[in-house]
Simulated scan of single mutants.
Amino acid sequence: MATRSASTQSLSSEMPSALPQFLRQDRSTLIHNFNYLENDQRDRLSEQHDNPEQESEWARLTGNDIAIRNRYINVEPFANNRIKLAVAEGYNDYINASPIALGPRRYIATQGPKSTSTSQFYRMLAQETGRDTPAVVVMLTQTHEAGREKCFKYFPDTPETPLELQPDPEINDGFEGKVELISVEEDATSRCAMRHLKLHYKSAKAEEDQNDDEDWKEKEIYHLLFVGWPDFSVPEGENRNAMLKLITKSAELNKPPNVPTPAEFPPALDPASEPSATASPRIIHCSAGVGRSGTFIALDFLLAHLERGNLDSVPDDVDPIFDTVNAMRRQRMMMVQSEAQFLFLYDVMRLAWLEHHRAADAEP
């Protein structure tokens, strides 16, 4: 396995000296570090593949009933860190979605729904988001790119044409409903289409004698569709600025609750840590739910630390960006999938750090 370069080994003389050490690393060092992450991930997956009967946190699920629900054969959640649908014992509880914990911040990274998994997607949404708060969904892909379906169009076009959710024949426990479009607006600053949706759903039956009339519930959803981000790549020009506005907008819509950022970096990055009692995870997806989704989540987390001043005095031997990507990849494979996306994190954080401190210096 390649060894990770120390952040003091390669510095660019063109970087402002005020920048912390982790933001002064040159391109070759960053590429080396990305390759380290890639090799580390490859070793973990190979170890599990070679020893399938050995218990491992990198275990992968098998079986046709699992594979048919995946959009891509090589992207799936780890068996010990996945969202499990609340279904009766003996039924398939699988959905290609992983809980991502970074300090007290909670996300769900998932693949773009397929036509056959739309009902499962909304079941997960109703199950995993706060009961008294709207769900926030960020979609970072177009439905079709380069002539291929990247995500099924799982939301209604007009208020007059709600999306019907039929009972799932694989589960057959009575979960059904519809999704209504309440309003849609184009937000110029974030270059996204923001849809206010309402999910009407009938809960899965726990008892045979449940009163059907009392079993219907409602869930508000804010759905943010951003299409300025090509697959495997990064948003450029105005789309980059818009994406940063989208991060802020999605966080604001997720309030209340106001989930705090840890006071220091690095935070507790233990995926098994208890979530805040008021936290409701944002659901983030692109097509596979790893590249664009992982990059978005990393920036949301890191920019929150920047705003709180937690990146002002980072020791020279600590790289918060590398550590964040590494923490995410321990929870879902391939998060921040491409080299371009990894380098993009440093570009964005470098500019954001300089802008943040220019603004702070300008204050009286």
Rank of each mutant, 00 (worst) to 15 (best):
Y346N: 06
T161Q: 10
N96Q: 09
E176L: 11
M15I: 04
N92Y: 06
Y91K: 15
L163E: 08
Y36C: 14
A277I: 14
E236A: 10
R60Y: 02
L30Q: 01
I100Y: 07
M139W: 04
T261Y: 15
L102Y: 02
F175H: 01
Y94S: 05
A6M: 09
K150E: 11
P77K: 07
E220C: 08
I283T: 02
S250L: 07
D319T: 07
S7A: 13
E47L: 09
E186F: 14
W58F: 15
S17R: 12
P16H: 07
G90R: 09
E89W: 03
A88E: 13
T161C: 11
G112I: 05
Q166R: 12
G103F: 03
D43P: 00
A204T: 14
E218C: 10
N211Q: 13
P167F: 01
P20M: 09
V259A: 00
W216K: 12
P281Q: 08
D209E: 14
A362W: 04
N70C: 15
K205Q: 13
W353Q: 00
S12I: 06
E208V: 09
K178G: 04
E274D: 11
N172Q: 11
Q120M: 10
P271E: 10
M124G: 01
G228M: 03
L19I: 08
D319P: 04
S313C: 08
E14A: 14
E176H: 11
A67C: 07
V314R: 01
S250V: 07
R82L: 10
S293P: 06
L311T: 00
A277G: 04
T118D: 01
K84S: 15
G289C: 07
Y36T: 10
R282I: 15
I68E: 14
S98P: 05
R350N: 04
R292Y: 13
P134N: 09
N241G: 14
H356V: 01
N70A: 04
